[in-house]
Design a protein around this nucleic acid. Sequence first.
DNA 1: CAATTTAATCAGGTGCCCTTATTATATATT
DNA 2: AATATATAATAAGGGCACCTGATTAAATTG
Lengths: 168, 168
Amino acid sequence: MANEIKAELAAGKLAEYEQLSKIYDDIVKQARPHLTVEGQGKILLALADEDHLSQRQLATRLGMSPQSTSEFVYKLVKRDLVTLTKSQSDRRINLVNLTTAGRQAIESADQEVPPFVKLLSDDELDQLSFLLNKITVAMYADIDAANPTLGVKFHKLFASRYLKQFKK
Amino acid sequence: MANEIKAELAAGKLAEYEQLSKIYDDIVKQARPHLTVEGQGKILLALADEDHLSQRQLATRLGMSPQSTSEFVYKLVKRDLVTLTKSQSDRRINLVNLTTAGRQAIESADQEVPPFVKLLSDDELDQLSFLLNKITVAMYADIDAANPTLGVKFHKLFASRYLKQFKK
DNA sequence: CAATTTAATCAGGTGCCCTTATTATATATT
DNA sequence: AATATATAATAAGGGCACCTGATTAAATTG
């Protein structure tokens, strides 16, 4: 019983955090443009991980329809952040390649640790990472059970964007 | 230094959680329709808190433009979840009222504590709530500093949806 | 009473996604 | 080789959550 209330409280806080972080993002975005982990941003992030992917590969990795992928790629082409080149081995395939500008867009949008995270103590940070890890592991399992074809493993990549230490 | 890495790790986990929860929502939504805390859902939630608000009031509380508010209200009217009645004291005002169906939609969509939260121990739930509270408090402050007019306090309401105990 | 403010709506637009055709190109089958 | 089938990508159209810039109607103010 007591446990039930605690769980509701935690779930509520989690929901509140999610809502707030949308607003937070909007505000921060106005100050300094930053990559969203949606649409075009997703594509860029995937290409940062591995360049010269086909649209089909992108779609699979990102768990979205090839049509949507094509749309975002097209928008990125218009913004000169990627180019398309026909594969020589299979001329149906349109390879998506980051341009210098595209690469720069990713770098310059490098995620900064938000201030509200910085204000936690060492111990608290450990606790938070531990708890969130427990939660995300369970989520991956649930999502995978519901839809094994979803390219969801990919999302770990978004998390690693914060880890500057690990980049080169 | 060590602290910096811990912070990056936690920030990354937080980002990963947010991404995953979008996907999680989509999957859960297919199984059982549920209110989103966006658009029409936001309106319903606000009305659940206080019925018979003007569109202007809704817009202010929800921190969105009156035009968007009007759009969502109109969609809800078409779905017979709310009705519009002209205010008698000020005939410019169109009051938005929940219908029985609207009220039911809110109740029946009552949030359930997600399984991944339930799997935490009592202590872990306490820790998580504490940490998230610390974070959200800081977020409220930052958001308010950036844009004091934003009706952001409202979002606490979303959190309270989980607290069945507290409802009537 | 004229001028201004306010509530709501209309019109049009953006971004993220989806589904249902189509069009090329490849590969497998006869 | 010729046909059938599978696959990569695109076109077309739609839905949802927002937004900005007019416009209209009703209130308030001077």
